[in-house]
Amino acid sequence: MAIAHQFAYHKAATLDEAVEVLTRAGPTARVLAGGTDLVPWMRDDAVHPETVVDIKAIDALDEISLEGDHLYLGPLVTFSDLLTSELVADRLPILREMADTVASPGIRNRATVAGNICSAVPSCDAGPTLLVLEASVAVLGPNGARTVPIEEWFVGPRQTALEQGEVVTGLSIPIPDQPHGAIYLKLQRYEGEDLSQAGVTVLVTGNNVFRIAFGAVGPVPSRAHEIERFLAGRALSDGLIAEAQHLVLGAISPITDMRATREYRARICEVMLDRGLRAAVSRRDGNGPAYGTRLI
């Protein structure tokens, strides 16, 4: 069945023009990048934008580049771009591991990383990983440019810090000190294309500083600061991991829905933390499983 409602389509030539049209068009206006969420949402009558602003004709928004000690992702960088970028493979293989779990090639070729966090469904795959990487989101709006730390980005299910008239102009990701190790574990019902039932990204740097974030087990992807503080500077041991696992319930707020029960999500998060911590450290130390190996 077709999209039933009519809307105006605007192909912006510049980001400024996109902002201008978005501002003028009012609160229902939507940015169209990959469209892999927006188009089916329109078909399902879940959203009814009066204006759709396509930003794909704007030059150079699909670049992945190194800016000092930061990796920059343009707002049109797709998950496939993450998978094929040598820069990503070299500097932040965790992004590649995460991208590899997203949907399937036909979606990854189109879906953007920025779009993933703009849709902001609780299970979004980019969320936990960008959280542990402490990315910041560059935004342009009617009042000019601003930067939103990723931890302030997710406001609620399908709600972000993006304000009316604003468009994401890029993601800036600080590259952690070497050596570091990281892992994204995603519990899925299916090994093939599936949404996350629960996910965790763990990152550890050389001095045993841990960063941990969970996805799909709360209204927004979120950092587990208490667990991070507990682990900070300590060497992993079975006992330490077991104690850290006791802190998981305090870090997440899973619900029972179509995809899993609250109980299962909670318990699996403990399992994933265990496996994630061990794998992140072993990767840091150069003897871990290759990036892309599925550990759950």
């Binding site: 019902r189 299916y190 090994e191 093939g192 294309e193 599936d194 949404l195 179509m258 995809r259």
Partner: peptide
């Protein structure tokens, strides 16, 4: 019916 779609009533993929 809560899952009238292939998102939540999925059938096995080539990896399953």
């Amino acid at each position: 019916l809560l899952n009238p779609n292939f998102t939540d009533y999925k059938i096995p993929t080539s990896l399953d």
